[in-house]
Design a protein around this nucleic acid. Sequence first.
DNA 1: TTAACACTGTGATTTTTTTCACAGCAGAGC
DNA 2: GCTCTGCTGTGAAAAAAATCACAGTGTTAA
Lengths: 214, 214
Amino acid sequence: MPERTSISKRVIERLSEYRSTLDEFDTTETRSIYSHDLAKLCGVTAAQVRRDLMTIGFSGSSAKGYDVSELQQTVGDFLGFGEERRMALVGIGHLGRALLDFFADRNPKLILCAAFDINEMRINRVIHGVRCYAVSQLTEVAKEKRANMGIITVPDAAAQDVATALVEGGVSGLLNFAPVQLRVPNHVFVENLNISTVLEKVAYFAGQSGDKER
Amino acid sequence: MPERTSISKRVIERLSEYRSTLDEFDTTETRSIYSHDLAKLCGVTAAQVRRDLMTIGFSGSSAKGYDVSELQQTVGDFLGFGEERRMALVGIGHLGRALLDFFADRNPKLILCAAFDINEMRINRVIHGVRCYAVSQLTEVAKEKRANMGIITVPDAAAQDVATALVEGGVSGLLNFAPVQLRVPNHVFVENLNISTVLEKVAYFAGQSGDKER
DNA sequence: TTAACACTGTGATTTTTTTCACAGCAGAGC
DNA sequence: GCTCTGCTGTGAAAAAAATCACAGTGTTAA
Ligand SMILES: NC(=O)c1ccc[n+]([C@@H]2O[C@H](COP(=O)([O-])OP(=O)(O)OC[C@H]3O[C@@H](n4cnc5c(N)ncnc54)[C@H](O)[C@@H]3O)[C@@H](O)[C@H]2O)c1
Ligand SMILES: NC(=O)c1ccc[n+]([C@@H]2O[C@H](COP(=O)([O-])OP(=O)(O)OC[C@H]3O[C@@H](n4cnc5c(N)ncnc54)[C@H](O)[C@@H]3O)[C@@H](O)[C@H]2O)c1
């Protein structure tokens, strides 16, 4: 029961950016940072930074700005870095493989606890420390491994079935790369990431002559 | 000079979704669609669909809804599918490879015209019909191939240099996967796609009990 | 000790985005 | 041909998000 009023996706995204930007800092060297500087590093305005930090109840000092390590800690706690997240990845194809490599030893609070595929060639192996299983065992293994998030990188037609199985396995958050609208129970959060759409957006705005982002 | 008032990123994203959703339809079978139905397929509200189509000046009929093929055509034209987009991909690593495979024979209006890497092993090859060059030739080749968009999938530290070289090569739109804030001239549109941030967002909202998306 | 400064925290305001709600229309049924 | 239905187009309202702008404050310098 940390947060009171529900906080928008946009704010959460920015908080995540602030935190990872701060991670690059050597806290023994840079002890504190001004909203202006953090803003510039993240491509937002200073007022926005202050407002966002205000919504999670974090305060700085007027002369020093924000204490870097305190801020890292507070934002991290807020985003739930206290409790670990266990992710199951389904679809060890091109994209799935890239993600496996990427998250293998990345954020220690987002743990890839299992991977799944339908292709015999891909299962019963260990890739970057992550064990690969057959999708037929998805629900079962997800439960056993206590996965609470799922990443879907299977062909479009398989996405819904995979989502259903993940949910049955106890997952309550999905990142879906297939351009398909998933039907899931209300308590499950779904984020769709359609790379084609993003590219079409870039194409559109790249077309305009002098139109600045945002 | 097609559109008057500048249109937001959000609207463009949704238009792209509408269009790709419509692509799945057999237009000889389904000639028209209601805002309600398109909305459901795309996970938005009917009013939103109508409003979005209104902003690009597209009209339906009160009894039939929207003519599917006309809608495809109009949205496609609006998004600039008339003129081709030529993309350069830089960084043929895990993620870059996945994108290469994906876009090789995908959207015929988004053409991957060249790929680049710094690693000797990866250059002077043709992957899925896309020729791979050394980054040292980036600006030069981008010009020659008339690339107007760039996709950046290099390690974080190299992203800025790559962006600069792409812009010099005539690119005016960038999709950047590196968690780095790029500095580019004003006329260049940059979209940052930070997958870690997206996952942290999912983690946050998956944590909340009964909180619906949006 | 005081003054000047540059910052934060935040109410107020503005801008943007979404939703509401309904007039008006086109076709179906009678 | 009239009525009923359920849709679109859209002003108006509401909600959400971003920005402004400034009082209050710790810090430094004189
Ligand atoms: N690769 C990309 O860059 C990219 C970009 C945008 C979107 N996507 C989307 O991501 C998804 C995957 O793309 P990809 O390029 O990695 O595809 P891919 O074909 O390389 O990989 C798909 C993997 O899923 C496995 N699979 C198939 N059916 C399955 C099932 N029922 N259960 C479990 N595994 C199953 C396949 O064996 C394969 O390993 C697609 O929906 C695609 O539209 C991919
Ligand atoms: N792989 C993922 O799933 C994933 C997820 C999120 C973000 N990212 C981001 O995407 C970027 C690439 O990730 P990746 O996993 O594909 O990395 P990778 O190491 O697999 O690939 C990077 C590629 O870039 C090449 N390269 C290095 N320096 C270069 C230069 N100066 N010019 C051109 N090419 C150069 C390397 O040779 C390599 O082929 C990183 O910024 C990473 O943070 C990747």
